[in-house]
Amino acid sequence: MTRVEVFTRDLCGFCTRAKRLLEDKGIAFTEYNATKDPSLREVMVKRSGQRTFPQIFVGDIHIGGCDDLYAAERSGKLDAAISGEIAQ
């Protein structure tokens, strides 16, 4: 399965929703919590170009934030990215 990474922060409802979707689909992911390690925010911004949380990556593909993740789920692009059918 393709590597999934989620950059989060504490007390973020969007982060909670994004993680819940991944968990409900049985998708394992690595969480990088910038509240616990503030240097992770710099890593996230460098990789995504975005400053808001969460930011989700599937392999080398930047999915975006929570709304983008749900849109990818609705369109079938999330499953395609997870299965490796979409490459960047």
Rank of each mutant, 00 (worst) to 15 (best):
F14M: 09
F14A: 06
F14E: 05
F14L: 09
C15E: 03
C15G: 03
T16R: 08
T16G: 03
T16Q: 09
T16F: 04
T16L: 10
T16D: 10
T16C: 03
T16Y: 06
R17T: 05
R17E: 10
R17G: 00
R17L: 11
A18N: 04
A18Y: 00
A18F: 03
K19V: 05
K19N: 06
K19W: 00
K19Q: 09
K19D: 04
R20S: 11
L21E: 02
L22R: 00
E23D: 09
E23W: 07
E23T: 15
E23Q: 11
E23L: 07
D24R: 04
D24M: 07
K25E: 15
K25N: 08
K25T: 10
K25W: 08
K25A: 11
G26D: 07
G26H: 05
G26A: 05
G26I: 07
I27Q: 05
I27R: 01
I27E: 02
I27N: 01
I27H: 01
I27S: 01
I27G: 00
A28I: 10
A28L: 14
F29R: 04
F29C: 03
F29N: 03
T30V: 13
T30M: 06
T30H: 13
T30R: 13
T30Y: 07
E31H: 11
Y32M: 06
Y32Q: 02
Y32S: 02
N33Q: 12
N33M: 12
N33E: 14
N33A: 11
N33Y: 07
A34N: 06
A34F: 03
A34H: 00
A34E: 03
T35K: 06
T35R: 04
T35Q: 08
T35V: 10
T35Y: 07
K36P: 00
K36E: 15
K36I: 10
K36H: 12
K36R: 13
D37V: 12
D37F: 12
P38E: 13
P38K: 13
P38D: 08
S39T: 14
S39F: 08
S39Q: 12
L40H: 07
L40E: 08
L40M: 10
L40T: 05
R41A: 14
R41D: 03
E42V: 13
E42T: 14
V43M: 03
V43G: 03
V43K: 15
V43S: 04
M44D: 05
V45Y: 04
V45K: 09
V45D: 01
K46Q: 14
K46A: 15
K46G: 07
R47T: 04
R47I: 04
R47E: 08
